[in-house]
Design a protein around this nucleic acid. Structure first.
Lengths: 224, 224
DNA sequence: AGTACGGACTATGTATACATGATACGTGAC
DNA sequence: GTCACGTATCATGTATACATAGTCCGTACT
């Protein structure tokens, strides 16, 4: 049983397919916050009936991506500044704990991956590939966060990243933002390489504060 | 428009009704962890079709109460010791932050409520009303946790309480446990009344450590 | 005897059809 | 002209019916 290794994802259940696609669309910002999702439209778009669509919508609601009112429908969750601030505060709390648990166990391989991801961000930036930046950036951070024995914690952090993701994309669009971002990433990598966990945490705090400051500024300009 | 005030909860949508009932049953431990839930059985039990049942199940899955595998069905989530330890660790992290935000703003009314809830626990204890203890205990703690401006944080903490709830019930069954619990509650109330936030947090940490130690002991006896 | 194949059964997944509740617009009365 | 009521329309909520995947058990073959 050794076929050529290939990532083979057979079309899962229809719910799951719809779920993935919709989640991607929301996280990437392709569907703007505040948009109403009509079950029938979504169903037609994916060529399935409304039943699997409804279940996917429920899951997305649970994840915080959608807001639902009975008999009123689903809307892509729109966040205000206060929400974003709370999310970043929670991230600070949870990520600090996660990093404190993980950073001591970083392998040489982990560090190499981080180095490569920094380059990937540069490349994606040069190509103006916002989605690519977002993915590489996320991967970079989760090298520091993800470690066995704290699956729940990691999952919570993932969700916080997800719900704030559509707003973060704006951040990556600005060239000055990207430059500062990368400068900070390199500093974080240096501290991680040196094994200075508390320094890493401190730099991450700064990293987040800079980001939320930008987000707040951007959001107050066009209060949707 | 002033009819006699009555808590009028008209039967909401079927999904929601099923959702509430099932969630209660799981949280209270009426449905044991590990149990498989068959869609048809649940549907029949509530007198609805499988469609609203499926949606309720999906939501419960998102909340962590159920575990789902495609084509295999839903099972009430069973936790092992490691899970419980992680949950309590997360509670410590999140509740400390929440209390730090709330404790300074406690009103006289809040303190009175806490005092009454301690008595309520005593009464429920005398009547061997485990469910009553659980509810009053939970309310007591959330007086210290719930305050405006941190809705997300509070929601996360609620979920952590919920998923570990069926296991906590065992804890309330032991008389020695209840006595220690109340002693700790009174100490917490005293510190809160004195306005000593850090002391409150410290006592809560101890409170949790005692609980998880008992839970771990109980769980290792009958590893399900 | 052990294993492998195949078929029947069961529960889940999906589609279609119907019911119900909500919103919007128009009409009438004050 | 404004407000209130009623009705039409549409999206959501629910039920029934069908399709499909997974499991279990029996049989046949090695």
């Amino acid at each position: 049983m050794s076929l050529p290794k290939r990532t083979f994802v057979r079309p899962p259940t229809a719910q799951e397919a719809v779920l993935r696609e919709l989640r991607d669309a929301i996280i990437s910002g392709a569907i703007a916050p505040g948009t109403q999702l009509l079950q029938e439209e979504v169903a037609e778009q994916f060529g399935v009936s409304r039943v699997p669509v409804r279940e996917a919508l429920r899951i997305l609601e649970g994840e915080g991506h959608l807001t639902h009112t009975a008999q009123r429908g689903y809307y892509v969750t729109a966040l205000d500044i206060d929400d974003l601030v709370e999310i970043y505060r929670l991230r600070q709390l949870l990520e600090s704990a996660a990093v404190r648990h993980t950073a001591g166990r970083l392998t040489e391989a982990n560090l190499t991956v981080m180095r490569e991801l920094i380059e990937k961000i540069d490349e994606a930036g040069a190509a103006d590939d916002i989605g690519g930046i977002a993915r590489a950036n996320r991967d970079f951070h989760f090298v520091l966060i993800d470690s066995p024995g704290q699956a729940r914690l990691v999952r919570l952090i993932h969700q916080l990243w997800d719900v704030s993701s559509p707003y973060r994309s704006h951040y990556f669009a600005g060239k000055e933002n990207r430059e500062r971002l990368q400068k900070e990433h390199r500093a974080i990598l240096r501290a991680a390489t040196a094994g200075d966990t508390e320094k890493v945490i401190e730099l991450l705090d700064l990293h987040r504060r800079n980001a939320i400051a930008e987000l707040a500024a951007a959001l107050s300009e066009q209060p949707s």
